[in-house]
């Protein structure tokens, strides 16, 4: 079997890469796929915490590439969905503890066994970025509809186009209220600027914070707007034609009149 290796990247930190990786991974696994998540952020391990498996991490990716253990020994199996595994990052090593060839080899090895190898890329465009991109076949770029993440996303898209080809975009933390007021870039604005294919939109949602607190990603519990969005994203990755709900901030006539007469 040769699975698909997908890097989740953004350029800018703090836009939700790790949350997206965890949710997409769980989403794919709940569709019956065998999925491994690689935490590529060496020295700043977080994916274990978001997934809620931090207490079961024994070995990590640096142990694997330096031959201290077998990949199988480092993988942490998810207790909720048995086809999901995590390859944790090291928290104590330097971020250049792994080189590009080692990362590429590890990914190739994991692709033999898994349908999907999802790689959570560190912020920035340095060595950690280059390593995770080299280990991937496809890329997902995450941005929020704010000026600096969009600018950094553009830079990353440029870098990806010369290596992996056209990435797909997730716009995270979209606030419908702000879009309706005209105070936030909407999906068409972001696409006009970045000119890439849209994979999905994840609305701003308190449930993401609560999920982080609990170590139980939103996609696991149906009903939250962000969890449903990640569920749809996972199905799109699997090739299903799932429409992206229009979130371009069109108000009803009554709401428009209300705003005109009574202000915001």
């Amino acid at each position: 079997m040769s699975g698909r290796a997908i890097v989740v990247t953004s350029g800018k930190g703090g836009v939700g890469k790790t949350t997206a990786t965890a949710n997409i991974g769980l989403g794919l696994a709940s569709q019956g796929k065998k999925v491994v998540l690689i935490d590529g952020d060496i020295g700043l391990r977080n994916l274990d915490l978001i997934l809620g498996v931090e207490n079961r991490v024994v070995y990590n990716i640096v142990d694997v590439v330096s031959g201290r253990c077998q990949p199988r020994q480092a993988l942490v199996k998810d207790k909720r969905i048995s086809s999901l595994f995590l390859m944790p990052a090291s928290q104590i090593d330097e971020k250049d503890a792994i080189n590009t060839d080692q990362m590429r080899d590890l990914s190739a090895q994991l692709k033999e066994e898994f349908d999907f190898v999802l790689i959570d890329c560190p912020a920035g465009i340095e060595q950690g970025f280059r390593n995770t991109v080299a280990a991937a076949d496809e890329a997902i770029v995450v941005t929020t509809p704010d000026v600096s993440p969009v600018r950094d996303a553009d830079r990353v898209i440029g870098l990806l186009q010369s290596s992996l080809g056209e990435p797909q975009l997730i716009i995270n933390r979209m606030s419908m209220d702000m879009v309706k007021r005209g105070d936030m870039l909407d999906q068409q604005d972001v696409l006009d600027i970045l000119a890439v294919r849209l994979l999905g939109i994840v609305p701003e949602d308190e449930a993401v914070v609560i999920a982080g607190n609990k170590g139980a990603p939103v996609v696991l519990n149906g009903g939250s707007p962000s969890g449903d969005a990640y569920g749809r994203i996972a199905r799109r990755i699997l090739g299903e034609d799932v429409p992206i709900p229009e979130l371009n901030g069109h108000n009803s006539l009554a709401k428009r009149l209300g705003r005109i007469l009574f202000g915001r």
Partner: peptide, 24 residues
């Protein structure tokens, strides 16, 4: 202004978009 806002226009996002297009 209120009519513009009710259509999602005239807010700060227009400035964001034009600044981004220029800087990019």
């Amino acid at each position: 202004q209120r009519i513009q806002h009710s259509f999602g226009k005239g807010g700060s996002k227009d400035e964001a978009k034009s600044r981004l297009l220029l800087v990019l």
